[in-house]
Amino acid sequence: MLEEIQTFTTEYLDKCAHLYVEVFNTEPWNEQWTFETARAKLFEILNTPGFVGFVFKQDELLGFVAGYCKQGPKSKSFYLEEICVQPHKQHQGIGTKLLNQLMDTLTKMEVTGVYLLTNKDGQAEAFYTKHGYQRSQHLIFMAKRF
């Protein structure tokens, strides 16, 4: 099977939305995405200035990564919004390949840092830790419900 990593474009939006629902409506997230809400979220990310994203294909779309660059006072950083791999294909290196492609691209763009939000103490945190990410000592996540 031929592996391909291609730029995430609107051509892949519907397939990525279906995958998003499949992944995030199951353990450990158990969220309640519909195709329409997932598609709207990914459409927003795709149309954010500074967007960078890739899809992983092997006969079919198996995963994607997406986020956007933000200019800071001295350098650019990247907010990794989503990384998503079909549940039955996880732990086979697809997420790592997507992350490596992303990092290669961001390095060429002179981005100096990546940040993201994820559930703590779970599979996702373990994945990011394995790839050199660490909990920030300087930033906290704050929320207000209303």
Results as ranks from 00 to 15, higher is better:
L2E: 15
E11R: 14
T96R: 10
K89L: 01
H131E: 07
D121F: 11
G53K: 05
P87D: 09
I140K: 14
P28H: 11
V21W: 02
L13T: 08
L2W: 01
M103H: 05
F35P: 00
N100D: 13
L139D: 09
F35W: 06
W33K: 02
P49D: 14
D104I: 07
V85T: 11
F64P: 00
C16E: 01
G132R: 02
K15A: 15
T9C: 06
A126G: 09
Y115F: 13
V23A: 07
Q134D: 10
E81T: 09
I94C: 07
F43S: 14
V114M: 14
Q92V: 02
D121N: 15
T34Y: 14
T129P: 01
N100T: 12
K76T: 06
Q123G: 15
S136T: 09
I5E: 07
S77I: 00
L117G: 06
V21I: 10
T107I: 05
F64G: 02
T48F: 11
H18S: 10
F51Y: 11
H91D: 12
K130A: 12
N47F: 04
L42E: 05
G95D: 09
L102C: 09
T7C: 05
E3W: 09
T10S: 13
A38T: 06
D14E: 12
G53M: 05
S75R: 00
V85G: 05
A38K: 12
E31P: 06
K15V: 03
G95K: 06
Q6K: 15
G53D: 03
W33P: 05
V85R: 07
F43C: 03
K70I: 09
V21T: 13
Q90A: 05
L80S: 02
